[in-house]
Amino acid sequence: MEIGSETAFTPWASLFGGVLIGLSAVMVMALFGRIAGIAGIAQGALGLPGAAKDRDWRWAFLVGLVLAPLAVMALGGTVAQTVPDNLPGMALAGLLVGTGTAIGSGCTSGHGVCGLARLSGRSLAAVATFMAAGFATVFVLRHILGGA
């Protein structure tokens, strides 16, 4: 599969996976009383300025997150994945995602899942902004600058 070619529409798998993500957010709230935003969890784990101080569970959470695809494969499942191979582009993308989520105080999970579930207007504004920026960026890269 190449970037820019069709991917199968998977409503049921996506819904089920989404429920698991929501369940994890509920676990983090029930157990630790925190928002399950991955950018924030990573910042806390790394002890970055202004981040939360409870690092123990954050490190453990990231380890679980990283081991998940290996668990799927150990159980005989397959993990389909196609990652863009334009490495300078990926470096820029990573820098933008890290800087943006730090400055904007959240990502797809923190503002998206957790913020919307709290009915936070601030999170809704963030989600609308990053979705619009994502749609616009893909439109420019694929349909104006060409490629796909």
């Binding site: 990652v83 902004t129 920026a133 960026t137």
Partner: peptide
Amino acid sequence: LFGMGWGIGGFCPG
């Protein structure tokens, strides 16, 4: 900024 990076790389933090 995050949305732009997401649109380039297809990855968000998780």
